[in-house]
């Protein structure tokens, strides 16, 4: 019966997903009742204020890229996390009357970035300062997009270059483009193979999960901060599973190995 309905080798994953959802909802419920959760300082996110401030002082624009992933693949969560940061950046640029240029590689992300920036200007009481021509779809070609961004960085003499989302080979092109333009650069991605490039070429870098915590960190919305709590619990569970798995395979305990082979392969 179980095998007819459930995909058996995903039962463990199913259990973990349900557990994460339940713990998240409990944490959010507690947050609604007033419980405050601690979230550690993330230097890269603090640097965003500094970067926008610098651009304001210099009278030069801020460039934001939400990465190059679409919304229909497994890296979509990175794009969503990037959009949360965009909302914060747009509110800052609205507040300080600084130009914000947002470039898009994915057409389906364009209307969302437009809406995020428009809403941010609205919430700061400056809808008249929102310029839709600064929210640009450049090309869905990865390197045409990269070339377009480099052109904008050098022509507009961008003072702050903020890159948050999923990036691939264009990461270093952006970072070097920003370096040559003299921008302060803040980047964040969960694409592990691109992290070395951002770390080498940017002033601040969010690594992996820090990007996903960014929205909660910047908004300080108690419900979102509470949901971050689940990541920590998940990490503890992952560490425990790694230890159990390592011991089980080292000592060759068939019960655990067979269980995982059947329900979590």
């Amino acid at each position: 019966m179980l095998e007819e309905i459930f995909v058996v080798n995903r039962l463990v994953l199913f259990g973990i997903t349900v557990a994460i959802a339940v713990i998240m909802l409990i944490a959010i419920r507690r947050a609604k009742k007033g419980k405050k959760y601690f979230i550690r300082r993330i230097a890269g996110l603090e640097a965003i204020d500094e970067a926008v401030g610098r651009a304001t002082e210099m009278g030069r624009p801020v460039h934001f890229s939400p990465g190059i992933a679409s919304l229909s693949e497994e890296t979509a969560a990175q794009t969503l996390a990037g959009l949360a940061v965009l909302g914060y950046v747009a509110r800052l640029t609205a507040k300080y009357d600084t130009d914000l240029i947002v470039t898009n590689r994915m057409a389906e992300v364009l209307p969302i970035t437009e809406e995020v920036v428009r809403q941010s200007y609205l919430s700061e009481g400056k809808p008249e300062n929102y310029n839709p021509d600064n929210i640009i779809f450049l090309s869905d070609e990865q390197f045409a997009y990269a070339a377009g961004c480099m052109g904008i960085m050098s022509r507009e003499k961008v003072a702050a270059n903020i890159m948050m989302g999923a990036f691939w080979a264009e990461s270093l092109i952006f970072a070097e483009g920003g370096f040559v333009a003299g921008s302060i650069q803040v980047a964040g991605t969960a694409n592990t193979h691109q992290l070395p490039f951002f770390l080498a070429a940017c002033d601040y870098c969010l690594i992996g999960e820090e990007l996903f915590a960014a929205g909660a960190y910047l908004s300080q919305d108690p419900m979102q901060v509470a949901s971050i709590r689940v990541q920590d619990i998940g990490k503890v569970a992952a560490v425990l599973l790694i230890i159990v798995g390592t011991i089980a395979s080292t000592c060759n305990w068939p019960v655990i190995i067979d269980f995982l082979a059947k329900f979590a392969s």
Partner: peptide, 17 residues
Amino acid sequence: SAGDPGLRTYIEQIGAQ
């Protein structure tokens, strides 16, 4: 593959199922 969607997508969407 030169990135995503690509080999990783195949592993996650096809290989896992």
